[in-house]
């Protein structure tokens, strides 16, 4: 079964936001823990954070290579350890978790602190057969076009590797 059957790409008519939905066949408390616990969040998100999430907290983390594929992980090694910061926005238990950050903020020597952030929000909705998780990242229209161009150029290798990760998942899909 194609894993993308239960994922929808929204946002093709709206350039300010990306919205994703996925059905997770697990209890709401399990999904919530995977999102709101900093250590668990890090394992699938691909970053390791210091400390725990709390509203308003500035979290410092580093990129860690994926555990999906050892070949891909080896190629991601240049990004390993790169620092990333996120600022927690809202935490509404078992329902909503959101943070702000600078997407693609890994160009060395650049001070991103004055640049606009995007808002990433996870919302959990119980359905009959599981939890529908919606992720919305918004605020892209505020990001200057030349910043986007530089970010893309700097990260082309990394994102190609993400695509390989994705292929690994889809080829192992049940």
């Amino acid at each position: 079964m194609q894993p993308f059957d239960n994922m929808q790409l929204r946002g093709c008519m709206n350039t300010d936001r990306i919205e994703k939905k996925i059905l997770l066949r697990a209890p709401q408390s399990r999904v919530w823990r995977a999102i709101s616990d900093a250590a668990e969040f890090g394992t699938w998100f691909g970053m390791k954070f210091e400390g725990q999430f709390a509203p308003g907290a500035l979290m410092r983390g580093v990129i860690v290579p994926t555990k999906v594929d050892p070949d891909v992980a080896r190629k991601q090694k240049p990004y390993e350890g790169k620092p990333v910061e996120i600022t927690i926005d809202r935490i509404e238990p078992e329902s909503l978790f959101s943070f702000r950050w600078h997407p693609y903020a890994i160009e060395p020597g650049v001070d991103y602190s004055a640049e606009p952030t995007t808002l990433v929000a996870f919302t959990l909705a119980p359905l009959a057969d599981g939890i529908e998780l919606t992720v919305t990242e918004s605020g892209f229209d505020s990001i200057p076009l030349d910043r986007r161009a530089k970010a893309f150029a700097a990260n082309d290798g990394g994102w190609t590797l993400q695509m390989k990760n994705l292929e690994k998942y889809t080829s192992h899909a049940q």
Partner: peptide, 14 residues
């Protein structure tokens, strides 16, 4: 590319 990155991350979460 950001969109695809999210796709990959959500599959890892699942």
């Amino acid at each position: 590319t950001i969109s695809r990155q999210w796709d990959a991350a959500l599959l890892r979460l699942r």
